[in-house]
Design a protein around this nucleic acid. Structure first.
Lengths: 142, 142
DNA sequence: TTAGATGCAAACGATTTGCGCGGAA
DNA sequence: TTCCGCGCAAATCGTTTGCATCTAA
């Protein structure tokens, strides 16, 4: 498979936002498109979908630009490293094991999306989104 | 003011959980009791409520033990440093500015507490709690 | 007396930044 | 041709750990 449509459309979106079309950018986007769950900066070059060489600093700066342009979303979890996923994908909430760090994507209707507008009005904050994670001990760690 | 009841009761709780009653522990607890919002490890010794000298490593290990005993809760936000607050205090959700990092405590009934049991049943995870933050741009940063 | 706490200093891991070269537009 | 993006290397920052000493119980 060369470039699937999704990666291609993201690349166009990046170009429209003033980013140059480089091999590293394309590789990062492809990893994000194929990732079943949020990835860390170190995960990215390890993915088989990442077919070029790139310096960690380059990946860092790319993701930073993608985040500024609101193409990717940063997620905290509780690990030392930040995780990232595409905003274009459907919003998810997560279930994380506090012992082993396993992340599961929750398949529930997000229960708080409707609060954003209300909070925005009451607080004066703009561009509100949210992050919701459940933490517990997974079956294997109990 | 010497030792308010809250700090004193936490100290007892710690003793019951096998921790020794030390000056550093008491100072940490007092800072947490008085903090209007979650604090970082570096914030703790800067607080006027922290009246002794203590090494960062000591504070780190104290908070770690308090977290293991589930006396304090860790919160991610998106800053580099983790934040901590007392679990005994009423659970809160937060509104954070993505530009300046300001944290506001949200005064809303938490909309997801009731989901924890359901998620626990469906996933096999135990001891579930959650973290919910809204991110936006505060009035000053717009 | 003695297991748990502390201080000091060094190790770590994940970014984060400065700089000069190279390639997309 | 220009300016953005890249690799390389060094600097930061927030922990995290090893070890010898101290002290609450």
């Amino acid at each position: 498979m060369a470039k699937d449509n999704t990666t291609e459309s993201l690349l166009r979106q990046c170009a429209d936002a003033g980013m140059r079309r480089t091999a590293a950018l394309e590789a990062c986007l492809r990893v994000l498109v194929e990732a079943p769950q949020p990835v860390t900066l170190q995960d990215i070059p390890k993915s088989p979908a990442f077919k070029v060489n790139a310096d960690p600093a380059t990946i860092y700066r790319l993701i930073q630009r993608l985040e500024e342009r609101r193409i990717v979303r940063r997620i905290g979890f509780h690990s030392r490293a930040a995780h990232y996923c595409l905003r274009q994908q459907h919003h998810h909430d997560y279930l994380v094991c506090r012992d082993c760090g396993t992340v599961e994507v929750l398949d529930i209707a997000c229960p708080v999306a409707h609060l954003e507008k209300q909070i925005s009005t009451e607080s004066g904050f703009a561009d509100i989104d949210h992050e919701l994670e459940f933490y517990g001990r997974c079956a294997a760690c109990q």
